[in-house]
Design a binder for these strands. Structure first.
Length: 647
DNA sequence: GTTAGGG
DNA sequence: CCCTAAC
């Protein structure tokens, strides 16, 4: 049940009555507004899907754990990492004493603080995805939970990791100057070629690049190589049979140890998203060789309001979005139980098997000061990627370089068959059409004002605004730019969000124009640092409630900080806001009938006290709050919760 | 940084 | 539990 989505965890019981009133913020109303368009899916969905697919097809994990940066995950996936040392040397071990003579990349010669991320590729499966409990699905979706960075031959490899998905930028070529004078040199393939490291039995890894074609292998493999044990564990055939478990455990520990591993709903991301809004960014279609100074002005990430973006993740994953008309066999989230379909196809002997190894993403232009830490760089890249992916993307299919636009066509009709050389088959990732930000911002339902509309459309169909007829119809292998729309921030607004002193002036737009997809100012001081994720719910125990009630009885309802200090000082996980919230719910609970109450029942005695205190303090607001204590002045009686009025 | 209140 | 507006 790996992919079983746990919607309730996304909107866990906080259904407060809808009191008609002028919305304080548009961020609300993120009610299901997901699109039904199968072709449109959130980047996360897509990635999750792809990752899942990979997991199914690429069992022999080769470069997976690598995706977990060691500095954050002590010992995590150490073994595997070891194995790939030769591929991805840890940044510190190499960057510092090598690669000093490589010549600097052209485009940004003088922009030592800029990085261009070309692509992120999916590593082979590491089993984690399958094992990821659905409760963490959102995290999986959160993707880009973290970005790793490793230096290699003067390059900085970025890889994306999340709890469920790990992807490395094996072919990402990051030109960065953060490593003093360290010149960078493309990884040879400049990130355009795909790494065929996915040795999945006979299945050839596909190199799917953004938006470029991929290598396909028509070899139909028996689906049997994906074995799901009854308990849902993933039976591995590769080398790291137990990797999944270990990783999971470590991952879990890691989670417990740090909240940094927050990916979803990252305020930072949101902030950036905001920054990417039309107000700050303009979209600039890639230069197809036909310079266009008057290019688009649409904001891909138009939505301004910050939204939870749950929608995006509440939608079924692509795995489950099989339309009856589609004959494709996709692993379902429920552990591949749909393998039956695969078999079926196999029997028919006309199945087309594909394996997508990696996606090339539009270039991400990032600028960071040399003094920035690697960690901050990682975060920056991650955020940029998040923004990109969360913007909504869709998949395009190319046959012989020609885009197949008719979704109704069958594969064979489109020239895609086992007989055909599947190398002619390609996939592209394109900005999603009008619904671009939908997943992220159901609010303000895509009713963009004039310009915005145009922009979004162009985002979806580069051809439309490229000025070049069918510019995206023919994709040149190894060189994809057609759909690489770019977002360039309006210089004047870039630092609006966080006029941090560290935020250096961004590179003049002209320099970015055709290259950057997004500039993510470093040091944009993530509000909640790192990837954000909703805190785990931790129901108040009766003891805690007691302590809370007691404290409130004495201090009143307007001094939550004091309440915290007095009764919950040592309960780090309880903030005064939490206490305030709890009190709020307690009052509510006490006001409703016992039948309507849920969760661990709170002794009526306590609830009575709640009401009493509530009533009392309602009458004595602000007054003798300091002494208050309508009753029961003795606190901490037998409470496990340490209190102690500090200071 | 707190508080208050909507979500 | 999150997010913000207002202090």
């Amino acid at each position: 049940m790996v992919f079983k989505r746990k919607l309730d965890c996304l909107s866990v019981g906080f259904n407060y009555p809808n009191i008609p009133r002028a919305p304080r913020s548009c961020r609300r109303k993120v009610l299901n507004k997901s699109t039904d368009d199968d072709t449109n899916m959130c980047g996360m969905d897509l990635l999750a899907s792809l990752a899942g697919k990979l997991l199914q097809e690429c069992e022999s994990s080769s470069a997976s754990s690598n995706a977990f940066e060691g500095n954050n995950l002590e010992g995590f996936g150490k073994e595997i990492k070891q194995e790939q040392e030769d591929h991805y040397k840890p940044f510190k071990s190499e960057s510092s004493d090598q690669g000093n003579s490589v010549s600097r990349p052209t485009a940004y010669e003088n922009a030592s603080d800029k990085c261009v991320v070309n692509s992120f590729s999916f590593p082979d499966s590491d089993g984690i995805l399958e094992r990821t409990p659905m409760s963490d699905y959102k995290k999986v979706h959160g993707l880009v939970a973290s970005v790793g960075c490793e230096a290699k031959n003067g390059n900085c490899d970025f890889y994306v990791k999340s709890e469920g998905i790990t992807a490395e930028t094996g072919d990402v070529n990051v030109n960065t100057g953060f490593e003093q004078g360290e010149a960078t040199k493309g990884l040879g393939d400049g990130g355009l070629s795909t790494t065929h490291t996915c040795n999945v039995e006979e299945t050839t890894a596909l190199g799917v690049q953004f938006p470029i074609s991929v290598y396909v292998d028509g070899d139909l493999k028996s689906p049997s190589f994906v074995n799901l044990t009854p308990n849902g564990s993933y039976a591995r055939h590769g080398n790291h049979t137990n990797l999944g478990r270990d990783d999971d455990e470590k991952l879990f520990s890691y989670h417990k140890l740090s909240n940094k591993f927050k990916s979803y709903r990252s305020p930072t991301i949101r902030r950036i998203r905001k920054s990417l809004s039309s107000k700050y960014w303009k979209q600039v279609p890639k230069d197809f060789g036909h310079s266009r100074a008057d290019v688009g002005i649409k904001a891909l990430y138009r939505k301004r309001k910050s939204c939870y973006g749950y929608n995006a993740f509440q939608r079924e994953t692509i795995y489950k979005r099989r339309r009856s008309s589609d004959r494709s066999s996709v692993v379902t989230s429920d552990g591949g139980h749909s393998s039956g379909s695969v078999s079926k196809l196999a029997e028919k002997g006309d199945a087309v098997k594909l394996s997508i190894k990696s996606f090339r993403i539009p270039e991400l232009f990032i600028e960071v000061p040399e003094t920035a830490t690697v960690g901050s760089l990682k975060r920056t890249v991650m955020e940029a990627v998040s923004v990109l992916l969360s913007g909504g993307i869709r998949v395009g299919v190319l046959v012989h370089g020609k885009k197949v636009r008719d979704d109704r066509k069958t594969l064979s009709q489109s020239g895609i068959s086992r007989e055909e050389n599947l190398r002619n088959l390609g996939f592209t990732l394109e900005p999603s059409p009008s619904k671009v930000p939908v997943p992220l911002c159901s609010e303000d339902p895509v009713v963009p004002d004039g310009p915005a509309n145009i922009s979004e459309r162009s985002a979806a169909s580069p051809t439309l605004d490229s000025g070049i007829p069918h510019a995206d119809d023919v994709i040149n292998a190894g060189n994809i730019v057609e759909n690489n729309l770019e977002l360039v921030p309006y210089q004047s607004d870039v630092s609006v969000d966080e006029p941090s002193s560290d935020l250096r002036a961004l590179v003049p737009l002209p320099a970015l124009e055709v290259k950057a997809l997004a500039i993510v100012p470093l040091n944009q001081k993530p509000k909640r640092t790192e990837l954000s994720q909703r805190r785990t719910r931790r129901p108040f125990s009766v003891a805690e409630v007691e302590a809370l009630v007691h404290a409130v009885e004495e201090l009143g309802t307007g001094r939550w900080r004091d309440v915290k200090l007095r009764a919950f000082e040592n309960a780090d996980h309880r903030t005064y806001v939490d206490l305030k919230d709890k009190w709020k719910t307690l009052v509510h609970t006490a006001s409703i009938s016992p039948q309507q109450r849920r969760g661990e029942p709170v002794p009526q005695e306590l609830l009575d006290r709640v009401l009493r205190a509530y009533g009392y303090w309602s009458q004595h607001q602000g007054k003798h709050q300091a002494r208050g204590a309508p009753k029961d002045p003795d606190m901490n009686r037998g409470r496990a919760l340490e209190s102690g009025v500090s200071v």
